[in-house]
């Protein structure tokens, strides 16, 4: 176990460089650069709010903030996991040539998506103030669902990045899955519209709990419930454990399939 930590320590600068590279590449040559991380959710917000407050109306108080929280959290999940999925394949040239801990690639991708999320925080703050949900010290508790979701994404990212090496179809399959998940999670609709017989769609949807955690803090302005945090903790732990096991088992044979 000790050697794992020493290798990780040795390569922590590589992790930093990889995250930095992703962010730099994302905004290279764009005039506004990192500002886009803030502008993007704001502009998307305006569009979705226009669509949903005129075309489809839901009876939700402070709908703008409700939607924003759900959307930002979901985007983080879908971006982090999809981005992590291709990490091993895209770095195949490197993996074939130089030894390094391979989990660094999915790890770095999830981290850079998390950085993107952090950049959108000012946008969320602006919307909070604008909609009258004034942030307090309690708002800082969003860090709990955020950290747990990060760990959850890491686990999923590890699983996906390892599986896709063997089955490239995962890319296409996962895109469909993400869009199904987008509708199955109460992002733009209130969970009350789900009829009781379809309630299982929420109960078995991990994202539901993470988004619930975020909403309890940012939208309702309180602390997250212990129940929510507990479930999120369990999900995160399970995901990262399975991720590590799958990835470790698969990684020695990556090179033969790249």
């Amino acid at each position: 176990m000790g050697t794992y930590f020493t290798t990780f320590y040795k390569y922590k600068y590589l992790l930093y460089v990889l995250v930095e590279r992703d962010i730099k590449k994302k905004y290279r040559r764009s005039v506004l650069g990192v500002l886009w991380s803030m502008l993007n959710p704001l502009l998307m917000m305006i569009i979705t709010v226009m669509v949903f407050s005129t075309l489809f109306r839901f009876d939700v108080e402070n709908y703008v903030l409700y939607l924003l929280v759900g959307q930002v959290a979901f985007t983080f999940f879908s971006e982090a996991t999809s981005f992590a999925m291709g990490s091993i394949l895209e770095n195949s040239a490197l993996i074939k040539k130089v030894y390094m801990p391979k989990y660094l690639f999915p790890f770095s991708r999830v981290m850079s998506s998390c950085m993107n999320l952090v950049f959108t925080l000012p946008a969320i703050l602006v919307i909070m103030i604008y909609t009258g949900q004034i942030p307090t010290w309690k708002t800082l508790a969003f860090i709990f669902p955020l950290l747990l979701m990060l760990i959850f994404c890491l686990g999923i990212g590890l699983i996906l990045s390892a599986c896709v090496v063997y089955f490239r179809d995962m890319f296409h399959l996962y895109r469909v899955l993400i869009s199904a998940l987008n509708y199955a999670t109460p992002i733009f609709y209130p969970e009350s519209i789900i009829p009781p017989e379809y309630r299982f769609l929420l109960d078995y949807n991990p994202l539901y709990y993470f988004i619930k955690g975020f909403r309890e803090v940012i939208y309702s302005g309180g602390l997250p419930h212990m129940d929510t945090v507990g479930i999120c903790f369990g999900l995160a732990l399970a995901s990262v454990l399975v991720g590590i096991i799958v990835f470790r088992k698969a990684q020695n044979k990556f090179i033969l399939y790249l």
Binding site: K10, Y11, Y13, L14, Y16, V17, L18, R21, K24, K25, R28, A93, L94, K96, K97, V98, M100
Partner: peptide, 25 residues
């Protein structure tokens, strides 16, 4: 050049490649 990222500049690549070889900043 296996460790190079074509989109990055030479300077950034020195740091990327060096990190891949296990060196610190």
């Amino acid at each position: 050049g296996a460790g190079f990222d074509p989109e990055l500049t030479a300077m950034e690549n020195v740091f990327l490649n060096g990190a891949i070889l296990g060196h610190n900043k």
